[in-house]
Each structure stands twice: as structure tokens, then as C-alpha cells.
Amino acid sequence: MAHGEKPPASFEDFDKRLHQARGGVAEPETAAEIADTSGYGPGLQAGIDIIAGFVGGGLIGYGLDYLFGTSPVFLILLILLGAAGGMRNAVRTLARYGASGSETGSKRG
């Protein structure tokens, strides 16, 4: 620390000033409160699961085909397996979201 500089404020003081600047709005405390800010999360996760299955299966299949010299055998096989695994993960993600009871707008009268 250079001569004449003030020491840094404590974290408690910083938290107090930050809370006051935010207007007293409390931060979300649990992961569910943080994740529940929009309804896009589970849909995006399901899409990422499917795409990751295709890409992962394709890359591994291409690598095995290159290694063994078998043209598109492993590529096609592992793309299909990766797609099936990705769809399974997407269904599990969406089922978990639906079972949590945090559906919005699904009850119409």
C-alpha cells in the first residue's frame, strides 16, 4: 500500500452499501430462485442435450472410422447412438422440470 492511501473497507461495509444501492432488493438465495427467472432454461438445456449427443457421437464415430479405416460405419452408428442418448437426456430434463411444479401458464380454464 502506498503512503497516504486509505485501507480498503471491510466486506460487511461493502455489502451494506451494495444492498442500500440496490434499493433493499434481496438477492435470490437458492438455485431454484435463480433458475426460475425465465422459462427458457429447461428448453435450452433440452436442445443442448440433443445437439451435444449428435456432435459427440459424430466426433467419436469419425475418430474411430479414421483410426480403423472403416469409412462411415462408426460415424453413422455413433451419430444414431448419440442422438438417442441426447433425446433421452432431454426427456429427463423436461420431465424433471415438469415434476418440480414450476410450470407457468399451463393451467388454462
Rank of each mutant, 00 (worst) to 15 (best):
69 G>V: 07
78 L>Q: 06
48 I>K: 06
84 A>D: 02
92 R>N: 12
79 I>F: 12
75 L>N: 11
30 T>D: 03
39 G>S: 14
50 I>Q: 01
46 A>N: 08
97 Y>Q: 11
63 G>A: 14
80 L>C: 07
41 G>I: 12
53 G>D: 02
96 R>V: 09
88 R>N: 03
49 D>Q: 13
21 A>T: 08
102 S>I: 01
70 T>S: 12
49 D>F: 11
89 N>E: 06
9 A>W: 13
69 G>E: 11
14 F>L: 15
101 G>W: 02
10 S>P: 12
83 A>I: 02
51 I>R: 02
24 G>L: 04
38 S>T: 15
6 K>L: 15
80 L>P: 00
73 V>A: 14
103 E>N: 11
67 L>S: 13
65 D>H: 03
102 S>H: 15
26 A>H: 00
63 G>N: 09
18 L>I: 03
104 T>Y: 01
49 D>W: 10
66 Y>T: 14
90 A>Q: 04
106 S>W: 02
8 P>S: 10
22 R>H: 04
15 D>P: 00
99 A>H: 05
54 F>K: 03
108 R>C: 04
25 V>Q: 05
56 G>D: 05
33 E>G: 06
85 G>P: 03
45 Q>P: 00
72 P>N: 12
5 E>P: 03
43 G>S: 10
80 L>H: 01
23 G>M: 01
86 G>M: 06
47 G>P: 05
72 P>H: 10
59 L>E: 06
82 G>I: 04
71 S>Q: 14
22 R>Q: 03
25 V>L: 06
44 L>C: 09
41 G>S: 10
2 A>K: 14
87 M>A: 10
43 G>E: 05
39 G>M: 11
10 S>D: 15
67 L>C: 05
